[in-house]
Amino acid sequence: NKFNKEMRNAYWEILHLPNLNEEQKNAFIQSLYDDPSQSANLLAEAKKLNDAQA
């Protein structure tokens, strides 16, 4: 299933973003579980936030 793979990839990438705190990571990961079809968008948002907090 495409979403499972996308979701897993997004999950791991978000988990390893160095500039997000636990609360931010948890919020993105919760959103992933709530709507796996948004994995790519959530990952993009997480990366933007990560870069902004660098």
Rank of each mutant, 00 (worst) to 15 (best):
Q24G: 03
A52I: 11
I29Q: 08
Y33E: 05
K5V: 06
D51S: 12
L15S: 07
D35G: 03
N41E: 07
A40N: 11
A40G: 11
D34K: 10
Q30I: 07
E22T: 11
N26F: 07
F28T: 03
K2M: 11
A46F: 01
D34T: 12
P18K: 11
L15E: 04
D51F: 14
K2H: 12
Y33H: 04
P18N: 12
N4I: 05
Y11F: 07
A54N: 13
Q38T: 14
P18I: 10
K47L: 04
A10L: 02
E23W: 13
N26S: 12
L32M: 04
N4Y: 08
N19Y: 10
L15T: 10
F3D: 10
A40E: 03
A52V: 08
A52G: 15
K25A: 13
F3A: 03
Q24M: 15
E6D: 14
Q30F: 13
W12P: 01
M7P: 01
N50P: 01
A44E: 15
D35Y: 07
N50D: 09
Y11E: 07
L20Q: 00
L17W: 03
N41L: 06
Q30R: 13
A44F: 14
L49I: 05
I14T: 01
H16K: 11
K48L: 14
K47T: 02
N9H: 14
D35M: 09
K47D: 03
K5N: 07
K48Y: 12
A46G: 08
M7R: 02
Y33T: 05
K2G: 14
E23K: 12
N1H: 14
S37W: 06
Q30S: 15
S37M: 05
S37L: 03
S31A: 03
A10G: 01
E13P: 00
M7V: 12
Q53K: 03
Y11W: 09
Q30T: 09
A52Q: 14
Y11S: 05
I14N: 00
K25N: 01
N19M: 05
L17Y: 07
D35L: 09
R8W: 15
L49Y: 10
E6Q: 03
Y33N: 02
L17I: 02
A10H: 03
A46T: 02
L32G: 01
K48A: 07
W12D: 10
E45G: 14
P36V: 04
A46H: 00
N19A: 12
L32R: 00
S39E: 01
E22W: 07
L32N: 01
N41M: 12
K48E: 12
P36M: 05
E13R: 15
N4E: 08
S31G: 07
A10K: 02
I14F: 05
A44H: 13
